[in-house]
Amino acid sequence: MNITEPFAIGNSGIHLLDPRPRVVIAVLFSTITAVLQQFPPLFLAFALALFLVFRARLNPVIVGKRLTILGLFLTMIWLLVPLTFEGELVTRFWKLNIYLPGIVYSAKITIKSVTILLIFMSLVATMPITTLGHTLHRLRLPEKLVFLLLITYRYLFVIGEEYVRLRTAMKIRGFKSGTNLHSFKTTAYLIGMLFVRASVRAERVNQAMRLRGFNGHFYSLEDFAAYRSSGWFLTFALSLLILILVLEWLL
């Protein structure tokens, strides 16, 4: 199990911005992108996302790797949708009909999903997960959800390690996974054991927290005043978003 935050630390203009407007703009921007139907505003949104990635000075190799994962999903879309989304026929390929609406639709999905991924990479992945947690808390997300996010992040690794340990214990006693009853049963035990351990662990963590005075409230160390003023960023981002919406309506 490997969860890393390759973009979290940096000193680009975007890293130094107040996290709150970054999260708000990211949510707004990606929602708008998701509902756009026209190509010109879509291209404008894509260009804006690229510009943000550029400003955040993200490592292009890692950005590329993240996009590759999305690429697999998009390949499936391109293979299936042009064949099944019936409408004006573009061409026949062997016995397969390829339809124009399918191609248009696939292209839109591609631009939208790449754009949204770039937005989140540049605006949200550029803060450590803890900062994100505290930011969401400041933005009035319920305390419990924020806590869940942070605790999940912390213990995913521990549970991952426990999984590896249990797997190893099974392997050194000659267990090989296959499609038979013994295999299914053993795997069910493994998963069950993982749940048992996770809940025992949760109980102990809760005790450790109470011993240090935890009473259900969530205090943050994050000092939002220390970030750079975000006035220009908000003005710039909001005016472009309005332009995108205007384009969408006019066309």
Binding site: T130, R154, R201, R204, V205, Q207, A208, M209
Partner: peptide
Amino acid sequence: DSDDQLFSPT
């Protein structure tokens, strides 16, 4: 077990 004690990310 220190993993019980340390629950914050940093």
